[in-house]
Design a protein around this nucleic acid. Sequence first.
DNA 1: CTCGGTGCAAAGCTTTTGCATCCGC
DNA 2: GCGGATGCAAAAGCTTTGCACCGAG
Lengths: 164, 164
Amino acid sequence: MKIDPQQKKIKAQVRELFTAYLEKNKQRKTPERYAILDEIYSHKEHFDVDSLFVKMKSRNYQVSRATVYNTLDLLVEAELVKKHQFGQNTSHYEQAYGYRQHDHLICNRCKEVLEFCDPRVQQISNTMGSLLKFQIGHHSLHLYGDPLLTEKGECQHCNKNLYP
Amino acid sequence: MKIDPQQKKIKAQVRELFTAYLEKNKQRKTPERYAILDEIYSHKEHFDVDSLFVKMKSRNYQVSRATVYNTLDLLVEAELVKKHQFGQNTSHYEQAYGYRQHDHLICNRCKEVLEFCDPRVQQISNTMGSLLKFQIGHHSLHLYGDPLLTEKGECQHCNKNLYP
DNA sequence: CTCGGTGCAAAGCTTTTGCATCCGC
DNA sequence: GCGGATGCAAAAGCTTTGCACCGAG
């Protein structure tokens, strides 16, 4: 894996933000917590708890599942990680820092997750917040659909033949 | 419970639609399936699998959990029921017929689910579908937020005192 | 030193599966 | 009567919990 200087910078910023969060909330700064944060910000992709657990294990770092769950909760609370539920019963997570606001489109065929941006989502959130008298903290917009195939029956995204 | 003539009419229509779906897909018309559909359309509220199972049991109708799960899948497929995942690990369901398109706002405090309508959601769905070359089948937009409290600290929805 | 965090394994919940029986077609 | 659907219970996931030990403050 290449070392992206931009990613390295983000990692450092995120560590600082996490430290600030931990201090503010009088939580301990354990090496496990930082190791998990670091691992998460080493890959751009979405992930689930188990794949993160396996990644930690396959590196030199030994953590328990319980700690992974605990730390993810903390990171969500600190707004450094976002939690999603895409149709399945497993939760998916993604980085929340250094990345512009976006939503997700999930392919019904291959379950791949694409990202997109639309400012109207924020507008809706604002409108409904004031209309219903809520302070909206976050939202999730998921679109589910089938890819339009080429005349050969190939998916225009994963390039796999998905006919029919 | 009052018998709402409008609701009764909807029930009849839904039964017909379900019959059409079952015939089209060469599935059997079992009494259990109709009983479950009927139970779902007897209450307007959202529900989860277990509460539906309990409701069926507490009536005269005995069904197994497996059948509830199977039938819900069918009903989702037939577009008579919508499935949602609100933050928790339990799936929630709601009627999909005789009800205008709407999305959900979930209260962070009491977990109550409010509904709202905004045509811009459909517009976003259309825009992103053609932009990313997908045929969007359905979507889910969930807003999560805290209710604005009155000066006495009461929630303006459930009227409970939620201070602080 | 103290008390919160961690690791491990067991328990808890929701959902799925296997198999015998039942019943719609 | 055949083959799919159901019921029951067991199994399979994912997540949470209990408890002993460890280590950050």
